[in-house]
Amino acid sequence: MFYAILRRFGQMLFVMFGISVIVFLIFFATPGADPAARIAGRNASPEVLAAVRHSFGFDQPLYVQYTRMMEKIFVTGDLTSFVNRGWKVVPAVMDSIPVTLSLVFGAAVLWVVVSIIIGIVAAATRDSWLDKLLMALGLLGISMPVYWLGEVMNLMTQSRYHDSWAFSWVPPLGYKNFSDDPKGWFLTLVIPWITLAILYIGIYGRVLRAAIIESMQEDYIRTARAKGLSETRILFRHALRTSLIAFVTLFGLDFGALVGGSALLTEVVFGLHGIGKLTYDALQNLDLPMIMATVMYASMFVVIANAVVDFVYILLDPRLRAS
């Protein structure tokens, strides 16, 4: 167990190192990308350019710059933005993490619970009108782009029907800290959670239904019937358990990516300043320190999410426990 954790940790360091080097090199090696020229602005005189180059350390060899940047992120924590001088990068990331985590965790709970219910109901009532209806709704959920859905949600809850009884409780857009105002935190996030979860509910519900129906064809289901168990017990104890493996795989990938910043569109639409928004802004003005910090954070989460998925696998499937 200890060895497994250690190996995961080593893997995480390796992934983070690899990604940081690539990001760093892309930043400097992209043709025409002279960071000093961009920082100094248009029509800067050669003297100013040289001064900027010296002041940001761009005249140093690349490996020195890389080492210094890593040191400033992980050791001293005082890396500053290239674009807004004096803006400390690490605290900015730390401030955005709770926003993204709140959004993604809440949505994940919602989509896991709802899609499991949908998958089970659809599989149990296979080929009935209910099954067909649920699968059609799932497809609809998958087909709606999240930014469009978000805007429609905003239109309804913030302006068009805001004064009606249904949506008068919806607070204005923005994020409220959980520690300051738990109720406000919850209320501001309800609509974003639903918006983000709808896509995944559609995908996961369909995947789970297919997996359950597949395992209902297995020989051990026939054995379970021969044992005289009830259909409900067969579905929940024998078919569902083995079907959750595909579900968990998918969840690990999606969850890691979302926490790492893929919830960008939802964050922008609902004015939540999370990691996705931060990364997006940093990419807009090629702010290397900020890009580097957010990418480090994201890769860490992807590796952690994968480790958690592997652990859940082992809980679900004893066949993986041996080695």
């Binding site: 379970a224 679900l316 066949r319």
Partner: peptide
């Protein structure tokens, strides 16, 4: 009792 004991038991 079924034919194939390899698949007749729930693996988990």
């Amino acid at each position: 009792i079924f034919q194939d004991p390899m698949t007749a038991l729930t693996p988990v």
